[in-house]
Design a protein around this nucleic acid. Structure first.
Lengths: 342, 342
DNA sequence: CCAAACCGTCAAAGCGCTTTGATACCCGCA
DNA sequence: TGCGGGTATCAAAGCGCTTTGACGGTTTGG
C-alpha cells in the first residue's frame, strides 16, 4: 500500500492524504480522521526511503563503533549503552544504524557515512585521549554526540556526555588511603582511551596528595576482560611487596580479581580490598538490594539515554550550541573493602 | 556531490556514469576508469535512499531484539553475536539496523517493518519455545534467519542457525554422572526460551538414562545474570541435601556461582563441581591457553557470522530453499570439575 | 457590496538514483 | 553502396514521498 493507492481509495489527492497523516493544520479534522482510519485499516506506512529523499531527513542515527586490532568495542558496556539509547529512539520512532569502523580507514569511513547521508547524526563511542574523529566530524558538519570526551582543549565545541572519571577514581583511591592502605594497585582500561587516562590521573592525584609515590608495577592497563583481571591481579599480588588494595575499571575485571584471590587463598575485603567501577550493567548487577563490591557507580544505560536525547535535539535544532553532561559517579560501599591488614 | 553534478563535471550522462560505477558491461573501459577516478576524487557516494527507491533493494538488514518486561535481550551474548554478524556486513557493505520490539505489539511491529521496507531481511533473536514470530514473518514474506530454533514442527520451513543445546547439556550432565555425582543442579536461562527448554531436556535425558530422578528443587531458571547465579547457588547449596555439582547456562551465571561458593567457604571443583556454558564471549573468555571452567563451548560470534551469511544469501537468492546450521558444542575440561565428594 | 482574508483541496515539481528504449556511430560484409 | 550488427552513449520515465503555488469557495470587514 502506498500513498497513491491510499489516496485514490479515499478519493483524495496525495497532497491532502500526506498532510492529514503528518498533522498539518491545513486539512479539516473530519478528513484527517477519515484518512487516519483508512491508513490504519490498510496498514499503510510511508516508505522511509521516499520520505527521506523528499525531506532530506532520515529518522535514523548511526552508532559508530571503532574497531582497532586487538581492541573490541562490541563489549558489554556498549550493549547496555545501546539499550539505553534505543529506549529514546523507539519512543521517537528513530532507526538505529550500527557501523563498525576499523580505525585504519577512519577518516574515509566517516566521510563516506556523511556522503551517503543515510543517518541524520551519529554517536561516537570510545573516544581516545586526543581523538582525530572529533575534528573530522566537525569539519564534515554532521551532528554528533560523543560518549566520553577527548582530552583536548576544544571540549566546549562539541556535545558530549561523560562521567567524572578523574573525580570518581580520586575519591575511590582516597577512600582506600583513609582505610590505611598505602600499596594500591590499579587495573585500568587501555590508557590510550580517554576515560582510562582520566581515571589514572584521578588515582594519581589522590596518591600524591597523601604523599604516596605511585608504583608503576602496581598499575596495569589493558582491554577490560575477566582474564585481564585474573592475570594482572596474580601478577601484582605475587610481587615481593604486594598491594593491599586494588581498583579496577570494570566489574568484569573485578570478577577476574576474585578468581585470582580464590587461587591465592586470599580473602576479599580482608586480605585484599577491592573497588570496582560499576556501570550498572544489566547482566552484571552489583547486588540488588545491597552492593556486593565497593564501587564507583554510574549508569552507562542512563548515559545512552542522555546521549540519544542530546543527539536528537541537535538534529532538530542544529543552531543550538553544543551541550555537555557530566555525570557524577557515586561511591558505594559494599563488602569488598576493609582496613588495611597490619 | 550527486550523480548529476558528477556527470556534468565529466561531460557524460547520468546513465553512463551510473553504469560505469555499477560495473555494467555497456560502458567502455576507458570511460569507466575516468568515472571511477572522478568518483574517488570528489568522494562521491550514491545516495542510498535514492538508490533504494529506484531498485527496491536496501543494502540493509535488521536485527530484531525482543523486549519483554523483565527480560532484556541487549545482553553480552547479543553483543558478541552482533560483532560476528557485522564482520560479514562490513565486508559486503551492508547496513545493520537494530530495532528493539516490545513483545506486546510484536505482530504489528513486524508488519510495520515490512511495510516500511527499509531492510531487505531480518535476523530474529531469542526465539521462544513456540514462537509466533516465525509464522508471522513467513506470512509477510520477508527473508529471515533465526538465531536458534523454535521447537515446533516446521523447522525445515525456515532458515536457522542453532547450537545443539540438548546434546551439549546431555553430555555435560553425563560427564558429571560419570564422575560420581548424583545430585546435580541446573541453573538455566528462562525456560520459555527455546534454547533453555532444550538444555533442560538434555539434562533430563542424561539423568533418566542413569536412573536418577530429577529434583525440581535443584533446577532454577531465570535471566542469566551474575546475581541469579549467586542467589540460585546459595539457595540450592543450603538445602538439606545439597547438590555436589552445578550446570549453568552462561559463564556469567558461573561467576555468580563462584561468588556463592566463596561466601559459603566451599571449594570449586572439590566440594562442588561446576560446568558452565561458554559462548566464547570476547570479554569473558574462559582462559586463553587452558580452560578455567569445565564448559560446553560454542562460539556465538561464529553463529553471528553464519546467520549473516545465510541471510545475505537468502536475500540474493530468494528462490533457494531454507538453510539450517546446527553447531556442535565442545565439552572442554577445565579446573572446576572433579569426582563427587564422598 | 466588494475586496480581502481564509479554508480545504489539488496538480505538479522535485528529491537522486536506476533502467528502459532510443540514437548515433562505426565496422565489416555482400 | 547499402545494410545488419555491435558498441557507446543518452534522454526520459519512474520509484514514493513532501512541498510549493494555485485554485475555487466561503467568510469577514470596511
Amino acid at each position: 500500500m502506498n500513498l497513491k493507492e491510499l489516496s485514490t481509495l479515499l478519493g483524495l489527492s496525495q497532497t491532502t492524504v500526506s498532510r492529514a497523516l503528518n498533522g498539518y493544520p491545513e486539512v479539516s479534522e473530519v478528513t484527517r480522521q477519515k484518512v487516519l482510519k483508512a491508513a490504519r485499516k490498510y496498514n499503510y506506512a510511508p516508505n522511509p526511503r521516499a520520505r527521506g529523499l523528499a525531506t532530506g531527513r532520515n529518522h535514523a542515527v548511526g552508532h559508530i563503533i571503532p574497531l582497532s586490532k586487538g581492541h573490541e568495542m562490541v563489549n558489554p558496556v556498549f550493549a547496555d549503552f545501546i539499550a539505553g539509547a534505543s529506549e529514546i529512539y523507539s519512543r521517537e520512532n528513530i532507526d538505529m544504524l550500527l557501523t563498525v569502523v576499523p580505525d585504519s580507514d577512519e577518516a574515509d569511513a566517516y566521510r563516506k557515512i556523511a556522503a551517503k547521508g543515510s543517518v541524520d547524526g551519529v554517536i561516537v563511542h570510545g573516544p581516545k585521549a586526543d581523538d582525530p574523529r572529533i575534528k573530522l566530524l566537525r569539519d564534515i558538519g554532521m551532528p554528533f554526540v560523543v560518549h566520553g570526551r577527548s582530552g583536548s582543549a576544544d571540549e566546549n565545541e562539541y556535545s558530549w556526555v561523560d562521567m567524572n572519571n578523574a573525580r570518581a577514581f580520586e575519591r575511590a583511591t582516597k577512600f582506600l588511603i583513609d582505610l590505611g592502605h598505602r600499596r594500591i594497585g590499579l587495573l585500568n582500561g587501555l590508557e590510550s582511551m580517554d576515560f582510562a587516562a582520566k581515571r589514572r590521573a584521578g588515582y594519581r592525584t589522590a596518591l600524591e596528595s597523601a604523599g604516596i609515590t605511585e608504583d608503576p608495577d602496581l598499575c596495569h592497563s589493558a582491554e577490560m576482560t575477566e582474564e585481564f583481571g585474573y592475570v594482572a591481579a596474580m601478577k601484582v599480588l605475587t610481587l615481593p611487596d604486594p598491594p593491599t588494595a586494588l581498583l579496577t575499571s570494570s566489574i568484569i575485571v573485578g570478577y577476574g580479581v576474585r578468581r585470582a584471590l580464590d587461587t591465592l587463598g586470599l580473602r576479599i575485603g580482608k586480605d585484599v580490598s577491592l573497588i570496582v567501577h560499576d556501570d550498572e550493567l544489566s547482566y552484571m548487577r552489583n547486588g540488588s538490594s545491597e552492593p556486593i563490591y565497593t564501587a564507583t557507580r554510574s549508569s552507562v544505560r542512563l548515559a545512552g539515554r542522555i546521549c540519544a536525547e542530546i543527539l536528537l535535539d541537535q538534529i532538530a535544532h542544529p543552531e543550538r550550541p553544543p551541550r555537555h553532561e557530566l555525570l557524577d559517579a557515586d561511591l558505594i560501599i559494599g563488602h569488598t573493602t576493609g582496613p588495611a591488614p597490619k
